[in-house]
């Protein structure tokens, strides 16, 4: 960060039909929001000058997010309440802006700092029960490893490492909600729907993942787990 710049961290949601957006589409939409908000954004130097902004870990197309983040660098400090109000007015409701705060220049980047994420996976289908899913998950997790095939490549996850917290299940109406916390990082990030699909394949019921929502992105620091904001 250059001297005289102010790093504003923004917490937003990816909800409703916006969950069908790709990460690139979300980034572009929020950069446009920031310009519409007339924030005094900093511009990168170099061949292709553009808004100085950095986004948190990507969400796949179809996955919603409750607390997603990006950082934007400003050339003048704008009061937090003012920045929040301006961003809210200039952003589509499905990418609702929840919170903004200045963070220190020494704070590591969102992608480097975020090592865990919490998800809620909704599972539905004839005969699907919370107990049945919980039982299948115990079996899968008990095996210790999970092979996931994606784009023709097989990736093996060490579940003891990938699942730092206990998986919880509960029923709401016809759906079963499964809360999964996964670790993310350079070794790859376990997609919670992959875990649930494996569990469903171990049951005799015809269940399917209905929706996936990332509810939190977390930073682990000296044994303490915290939110980026």
């Amino acid at each position: 960060m250059a001297a005289g710049e102010f790093r504003l961290r923004v917490c937003y949601a990816k909800s409703g039909r916006a969950r069908f957006l790709s990460h690139l589409e979300v980034m572009r939409a929020l950069e446009r929001s920031s310009r519409r908000a007339a924030l005094p954004y900093a511009v990168t130097k170099g061949f292709n000058p553009h808004m100085k902004a950095a986004f948190g870990p990507a969400l796949p197309v179809g996955t919603a997010g409750e607390r997603e983040y990006f950082d934007i660098w400003l050339t003048q400090p704008v009061p937090v309440a003012d920045a929040l109000e301006r961003l809210r007015r200039s952003t589509p409701a499905e990418l609702g802006i929840d919170q903004v705060r200045y963070v220190h220049e020494r704070e590591p980047s969102l992608t480097a700092a975020a090592t865990m994420a919490r998800y809620e996976v909704a599972v539905g289908g004839e005969g699907v029960t919370a107990e049945g899913i919980a039982e299948a998950l115990v079996t899968v997790i008990g095996e210790g490893r999970l092979e996931v095939e994606r784009k023709g490549k097989t990736k093996v996850f060490d579940l003891a490492r990938s699942l730092p917290e206990e998986v919880r299940t509960r029923s709401t109406g016809p759906l079963v909600i499964v809360e999964v916390t996964t670790r993310m990082g350079q070794e790859g990030s376990l997609r919670p729907d992959a875990l649930l699909e494996e569990a469903l394949s171990r049951t005799s019921v015809d269940g399917a993942v209905v929706s996936v929502t990332r509810t939190d992105i977390l930073i682990e620091e000296e044994g303490v787990v915290r939110r980026p904001l």
């Binding site: 409703g16 039909r17 069908f20 957006l21 790709s22 446009r32 929001s33 197309v61 179809g62 589509p92």
Partner: peptide
């Protein structure tokens, strides 16, 4: 319409509420 979106490529073609 929304029920069809997870089944098609590029569902962003069919969502509304752009700015």
């Amino acid at each position: 319409v929304e029920a069809l979106l997870p089944r098609v490529e590029r569902p962003v073609r069919y969502i509304n509420s752009e700015w």
